[in-house]
C-alpha cells in the first residue's frame, strides 16, 4: 500500500532552527495504519504532529504528506492539503460562538458544500457520535467528553485521508475516552483512514492492530 506519510532524515526545530526537537527521523505510514506516538512530556510528540499539518516546517530532511513535501509546500497547496485532514486537539478547539452542528460541518463549509448537504451531514455525523439532541447547543453547554465527540465528528466530516489527534483523551474520563477510541477505530476500520494519535498512554482496551512509535532523545523509533 502507498505511503500517506513519509519522513526521511527529518529534523524539526524551534527558535529559527536553534532548538532541535526531532533529529534525523525516518518513518513511513501507510494508508489505513493506526499509529500511536508516545514519549515523555516535552519529547516532541505534539511538535511532530504540528509538522504533519504544516504548522511547523522541517528544518532539514523530507516530510511528505498526501504526496506533498511539506518542506517546500506553498500556502495555497497547504490549504488544499489540510482539507484532506481531520485534526483533533486535546483542548477540542471548537468555535464557541457556533452551534455544535455548525462546528461539525466546518470542513464541508470550507469545501463549499451546499447548506442542504451540510445539514444532512451534520445530522448523520452527530448521530454517529451520539450527540443528535445537542445539534443546536453551543460547545460550552456540553461536557468535555461531548465536546471532544464534536471534535471527532468534525474531523470525520469530509472522510479525510488522515486523522491527526493530539492527546484526544487527555482531558477526559475513562468512559468518554473509550467512546473516542471507538470512534477512531471505526473510522480507521470502515473508511481505511490513516490515524495518527499522539498520547501519553496507549488505551488498554483496543481491538485494532496498530503501530507504535516512541519519541525519545530527539529520535522517532518504531516499537515492534
Amino acid at each position: 500500500m502507498s505511503n500517506v506519510i513519509s519522513a526521511k532524515n527529518l529534523t524539526l526545530a524551534y527558535d529559527n532552527g536553534r532548538k532541535e526537537i526531532i533529529k534525523n527521523a525516518s518513518f513511513n505510514i501507510k494508508k489505513g495504519d493506526f499509529v500511536f506516538i508516545t514519549g515523555p512530556s516535552g519529547s516532541g510528540k505534539s511538535t511532530l504532529l504540528k509538522s504533519l499539518y504544516g504548522q511547523l516546517k522541517p528544518k532539514e530532511g523530507n516530510l511528505v504528506v498526501g504526496g506533498r513535501d511539506l518542506a517546500s509546500i506553498s500556502s495555497r497547496q497547504l490549504q488544499e492539503l489540510r482539507t484532506h485532514m481531520g485534526i483533533i486537539f486535546q483542548d477540542y478547539k471548537l468555535i464557541n460562538e457556533w452551534t455544535v452542528a455548525k462546528n461539525v460541518v466546518l470542513p464541508l463549509m470550507i469545501a463549499g458544500y451546499s447548506l442542504d448537504v451540510q445539514e444532512t451531514q451534520a445530522h448523520r455525523l452527530l448521530k454517529h457520535v451520539k450527540l443528535s439532541e445537542h445539534a443546536d447547543k453551543y460547545p460550552l453547554e456540553l461536557s468535555g467528553g461531548e465536546q471532544q465527540r464534536v471534535g471527532v465528528a468534525r474531523a470525520l466530516a469530509k472522510n479525510p485521508v488522515v486523522i491527526l489527534a493530539d492527546e484526544p483523551t487527555g482531558n477526559l474520563d475513562d468512559y468518554s475516552s473509550n467512546v473516542i477510541w471507538d470512534l477512531m477505530e471505526n473510522a480507521c476500520q470502515q473508511l481505511e483512514t490513516t490515524v495518527l494519535v499522539v498520547t501519553h498512554k496507549i488505551p488498554t482496551i483496543f481491538s485494532l492492530p496498530y503501530r507504535h512509535f516512541i519519541i525519545e532523545s530527539k529520535g522517532v523509533y518504531e516499537v515492534h
Binding site: Y53, Q55, L78, Q79, E80, L81, R82, T83, M85, I87, K93, L94, I95, N96, E97, W98, L106, P107, M109, I110, R154
Partner: peptide, 16 residues
C-alpha cells in the same frame, strides 16, 4: 483569533 485559527487549520481560505 481562535475562530480564524481553527478555520485555517482545516484549510479555510483567507476570505472565508
Amino acid at each position: 483569533r481562535e475562530r480564524m485559527q481553527v478555520m485555517e487549520i482545516f484549510g479555510a481560505p483567507l476570505m472565508l
